Measured scan of single mutants.
Amino acid sequence: HDTTVHINGLRIEVHGASEEILKWIEEAARRGVEAEEIKRWVEEALK
C-alpha cells in the first residue's frame, strides 16, 4: 500500500508497506514511540 500515517501530528509517507507494517506503526504510536523514531524504522524496513 501507499499510505500516509499520521502520528502525533507528524505525517509519515509509507510506500509499499504491508498491513503488518501499518499495524506495527499504529501499535508503536499507541505505546508513545517518538514519531521520528518510527519513521526511521519504517524507512529501514522498506529498504
Score class of each variant (00 low, 15 high):
residue 14 V to T: 09
residue 30 R to S: 15
residue 13 E to Y: 06
residue 28 A to W: 10
residue 1 H to Q: 13
residue 46 L to Q: 04
residue 31 R to S: 13
residue 20 E to I: 10
residue 14 V to K: 01
residue 45 A to K: 08
residue 32 G to W: 02
residue 42 V to A: 03
residue 39 K to Q: 11
residue 16 G to R: 05
residue 32 G to A: 02
residue 11 R to Y: 12
residue 16 G to L: 08
residue 19 E to S: 12
residue 27 E to R: 03
residue 43 E to A: 09
residue 34 E to S: 14
residue 33 V to C: 07
residue 15 H to W: 15
residue 8 N to M: 04
residue 4 T to N: 11
residue 3 T to I: 15
residue 4 T to Y: 12
residue 9 G to R: 00
residue 47 K to T: 10
residue 37 E to R: 06
residue 3 T to A: 13
residue 36 E to V: 09
residue 16 G to C: 07
residue 6 H to Y: 12
residue 41 W to C: 06
residue 1 H to L: 13
residue 38 I to F: 01
residue 27 E to S: 05
residue 18 S to F: 07
residue 29 A to N: 09
residue 1 H to S: 14
residue 30 R to K: 15
residue 33 V to R: 02
residue 36 E to S: 11
residue 4 T to E: 11
residue 11 R to D: 12
residue 15 H to C: 08
residue 13 E to V: 06
residue 11 R to W: 14
residue 9 G to D: 05
residue 38 I to T: 00
residue 24 W to Y: 09
residue 15 H to L: 14
residue 21 I to Q: 03
residue 39 K to S: 08
residue 44 E to W: 11
residue 33 V to H: 03
residue 20 E to G: 08
residue 18 S to M: 07
residue 6 H to W: 13
residue 18 S to P: 09
residue 15 H to M: 12
residue 32 G to F: 03
residue 39 K to A: 10
residue 33 V to N: 02
residue 26 E to K: 08
residue 7 I to Q: 03
residue 23 K to D: 07
residue 16 G to V: 04
residue 41 W to S: 02
residue 45 A to H: 11
residue 10 L to K: 02
residue 31 R to P: 01
residue 37 E to S: 07
residue 37 E to F: 12
residue 3 T to L: 14
residue 44 E to K: 08
residue 42 V to D: 00
residue 2 D to K: 13
residue 33 V to M: 12
residue 21 I to D: 01
residue 47 K to Y: 09
residue 44 E to Q: 11
residue 39 K to C: 07
residue 2 D to E: 13
residue 13 E to S: 06
residue 26 E to M: 10
residue 40 R to I: 08
residue 32 G to P: 02
residue 17 A to H: 05
residue 27 E to L: 05
residue 21 I to E: 01
residue 39 K to L: 13
residue 8 N to Y: 01
residue 24 W to P: 00
residue 20 E to W: 15
residue 17 A to S: 08
residue 2 D to P: 15
residue 24 W to C: 04
residue 30 R to V: 13
residue 21 I to Y: 01
residue 10 L to G: 08
residue 5 V to G: 04
residue 10 L to F: 09
residue 8 N to P: 05
residue 36 E to D: 11
residue 24 W to M: 06
residue 4 T to P: 07
residue 5 V to T: 05
residue 44 E to S: 09
residue 30 R to A: 15
residue 17 A to D: 03
residue 8 N to H: 08
residue 15 H to Y: 14
residue 25 I to C: 04
residue 46 L to M: 12
residue 43 E to W: 06
residue 45 A to W: 15
residue 34 E to N: 12
residue 46 L to H: 02
residue 32 G to H: 04
residue 19 E to V: 12
residue 14 V to M: 07
residue 36 E to G: 08
residue 6 H to V: 15
residue 13 E to R: 02
residue 29 A to M: 15
residue 19 E to G: 07
residue 15 H to S: 13
residue 45 A to M: 13
residue 4 T to I: 15
residue 7 I to R: 01
residue 5 V to P: 04
residue 17 A to L: 13
residue 44 E to M: 11
residue 27 E to I: 03
residue 10 L to R: 00
residue 26 E to S: 07
residue 11 R to A: 15
residue 35 A to L: 12
residue 6 H to G: 04
residue 7 I to Y: 05
residue 22 L to I: 11
residue 8 N to F: 01
residue 3 T to W: 11
residue 9 G to F: 02
residue 36 E to L: 12
residue 44 E to N: 10
residue 16 G to H: 08
residue 3 T to F: 14
residue 14 V to E: 02
residue 41 W to H: 08
residue 25 I to S: 01
residue 24 W to S: 01
residue 46 L to T: 05
residue 26 E to Q: 11
residue 42 V to K: 00
residue 37 E to L: 11
residue 4 T to Q: 10
residue 4 T to F: 13
residue 17 A to R: 03
residue 38 I to K: 00
residue 12 I to G: 01
residue 46 L to D: 01
residue 33 V to W: 12
residue 36 E to Y: 08
residue 46 L to F: 06
residue 23 K to G: 06
residue 25 I to L: 06
residue 17 A to W: 08
residue 35 A to D: 06
residue 22 L to E: 01
residue 20 E to D: 12
residue 32 G to L: 03
residue 18 S to V: 08
residue 11 R to I: 15
residue 7 I to P: 03
residue 41 W to G: 01
residue 42 V to G: 00
residue 1 H to Y: 14
residue 28 A to M: 14
residue 26 E to C: 08
residue 28 A to D: 01
residue 40 R to L: 09
residue 34 E to P: 15
residue 13 E to M: 03
residue 17 A to Q: 04
residue 3 T to N: 12
residue 22 L to D: 01
residue 14 V to W: 09
residue 28 A to N: 02
residue 30 R to T: 11
residue 40 R to D: 03
residue 19 E to A: 12
residue 1 H to K: 14
residue 26 E to D: 08
residue 21 I to L: 11
residue 20 E to K: 09
residue 47 K to S: 11
residue 43 E to F: 09
residue 16 G to S: 07
residue 24 W to N: 01
residue 17 A to T: 05
residue 14 V to D: 01
residue 11 R to L: 14
residue 28 A to R: 00
residue 13 E to T: 06
residue 41 W to E: 02
residue 29 A to P: 01
residue 32 G to K: 02
residue 44 E to L: 11
residue 33 V to A: 05
residue 9 G to K: 02
residue 34 E to M: 09
residue 16 G to D: 07
residue 5 V to K: 04
residue 18 S to L: 07
residue 36 E to T: 11
residue 1 H to C: 06
residue 29 A to W: 14
residue 4 T to D: 07
residue 40 R to W: 05
residue 14 V to Q: 02
residue 22 L to M: 12
residue 18 S to N: 11
residue 16 G to E: 05
residue 7 I to K: 02
residue 30 R to F: 11
residue 29 A to C: 12
residue 44 E to D: 12
residue 42 V to E: 00
residue 33 V to T: 05
residue 36 E to I: 10
residue 6 H to F: 11
residue 16 G to T: 07
residue 35 A to R: 04
residue 9 G to V: 04
residue 18 S to R: 05
residue 23 K to V: 09
residue 36 E to N: 10
residue 23 K to T: 08
residue 47 K to M: 12
residue 20 E to H: 11
residue 29 A to T: 13
residue 27 E to D: 15
residue 34 E to A: 15
residue 12 I to P: 01
residue 18 S to A: 06
residue 15 H to Q: 13
residue 41 W to A: 06
residue 36 E to C: 06
residue 13 E to P: 10
residue 27 E to Y: 03
residue 5 V to D: 04
residue 6 H to A: 08
residue 46 L to E: 02
residue 13 E to K: 02
residue 32 G to Q: 03
residue 29 A to S: 11
residue 34 E to T: 14
residue 23 K to F: 07
residue 5 V to Q: 05
residue 12 I to F: 10
residue 5 V to L: 14
residue 27 E to F: 03
residue 26 E to R: 09
residue 35 A to K: 05
residue 36 E to H: 11
residue 35 A to M: 09
residue 32 G to R: 01
residue 25 I to K: 00
residue 42 V to W: 02
residue 22 L to Y: 05
residue 14 V to N: 02
residue 6 H to I: 15
residue 12 I to Y: 07
residue 20 E to V: 10
residue 31 R to C: 11
residue 19 E to Y: 12
residue 24 W to A: 04
residue 6 H to R: 05
residue 26 E to A: 09
residue 7 I to F: 06
residue 31 R to T: 13
residue 47 K to D: 06
residue 41 W to L: 08
residue 22 L to C: 09
residue 38 I to N: 00
residue 41 W to I: 10
residue 25 I to P: 00
residue 45 A to S: 06
residue 33 V to Y: 08
residue 33 V to Q: 04
residue 25 I to E: 00
residue 35 A to F: 14
residue 1 H to F: 13
residue 6 H to S: 14
residue 42 V to M: 04
residue 13 E to F: 06
residue 36 E to F: 08
residue 47 K to E: 07
residue 22 L to A: 04
residue 44 E to P: 00
residue 24 W to F: 05
residue 38 I to D: 00
residue 43 E to H: 07
residue 38 I to A: 01
residue 42 V to Y: 04
residue 37 E to W: 08
residue 17 A to Y: 07
residue 25 I to N: 00
residue 21 I to M: 09
residue 34 E to Y: 07
residue 34 E to K: 12
residue 30 R to I: 14
residue 35 A to C: 08
residue 8 N to I: 06
residue 7 I to V: 12
residue 21 I to G: 00
residue 37 E to D: 12
residue 19 E to C: 04
residue 35 A to Y: 13
residue 29 A to G: 07
residue 27 E to V: 03
residue 38 I to C: 01
residue 36 E to R: 06
residue 13 E to C: 10
residue 42 V to I: 10
residue 33 V to I: 10
residue 12 I to S: 02
residue 6 H to D: 11
residue 33 V to S: 02
residue 1 H to T: 13
residue 45 A to I: 10
residue 45 A to R: 07
residue 2 D to N: 14
residue 23 K to Q: 09
residue 46 L to Y: 07
residue 37 E to I: 11
residue 41 W to Y: 14
residue 34 E to V: 10
residue 35 A to G: 06
residue 29 A to Q: 13
residue 37 E to P: 00
residue 10 L to P: 01
residue 1 H to P: 14
residue 44 E to Y: 10
residue 2 D to I: 15
residue 26 E to G: 05
residue 37 E to C: 06
residue 47 K to Q: 11
residue 7 I to S: 03
residue 22 L to W: 09
residue 23 K to L: 11
residue 30 R to E: 15
residue 9 G to L: 02
residue 14 V to A: 05
residue 4 T to S: 13
residue 31 R to D: 15
residue 32 G to D: 03
residue 12 I to N: 02
residue 11 R to G: 10
residue 27 E to T: 04
residue 39 K to E: 05
residue 38 I to L: 04
residue 12 I to Q: 02
residue 39 K to M: 14
residue 33 V to K: 03
residue 7 I to W: 04
residue 12 I to A: 03
residue 40 R to T: 06
residue 5 V to C: 10
residue 32 G to I: 01
residue 2 D to T: 15
residue 13 E to N: 12
residue 8 N to Q: 10
residue 31 R to I: 11
residue 43 E to T: 09
residue 43 E to I: 12
residue 4 T to R: 04
residue 28 A to S: 04
residue 8 N to A: 10
residue 43 E to C: 03
residue 9 G to N: 04
residue 27 E to G: 02
residue 40 R to N: 07
residue 24 W to E: 01
residue 16 G to N: 10
residue 29 A to Y: 14
residue 47 K to W: 07
residue 11 R to T: 15
residue 28 A to C: 03
residue 11 R to P: 10
residue 38 I to M: 03
residue 45 A to Y: 14
residue 46 L to P: 00
residue 10 L to Q: 07
residue 8 N to S: 09
residue 9 G to W: 02
residue 47 K to P: 02
residue 22 L to P: 00
residue 39 K to P: 01
residue 17 A to P: 05
residue 14 V to F: 12
residue 42 V to N: 00
residue 5 V to F: 08
residue 31 R to E: 11
residue 39 K to V: 10
residue 28 A to H: 02
residue 45 A to N: 09
residue 19 E to M: 13
residue 12 I to T: 01
residue 5 V to A: 04
residue 20 E to C: 06
residue 26 E to I: 10
residue 43 E to M: 12
residue 2 D to Q: 15
residue 3 T to S: 13
residue 15 H to R: 07
residue 2 D to H: 14
residue 26 E to V: 11
residue 14 V to S: 03
residue 37 E to Y: 10
residue 4 T to W: 09
residue 6 H to L: 14
residue 41 W to D: 00
residue 11 R to M: 15
residue 15 H to I: 13
residue 26 E to H: 10
residue 12 I to E: 02
residue 36 E to K: 08
residue 18 S to W: 08
residue 23 K to E: 10
residue 13 E to I: 05
residue 25 I to Q: 01
residue 11 R to N: 12
residue 41 W to P: 00
residue 28 A to Y: 05
residue 26 E to N: 07
residue 21 I to V: 09
residue 2 D to F: 15
residue 47 K to N: 12
residue 42 V to L: 09
residue 40 R to M: 09
residue 10 L to Y: 09
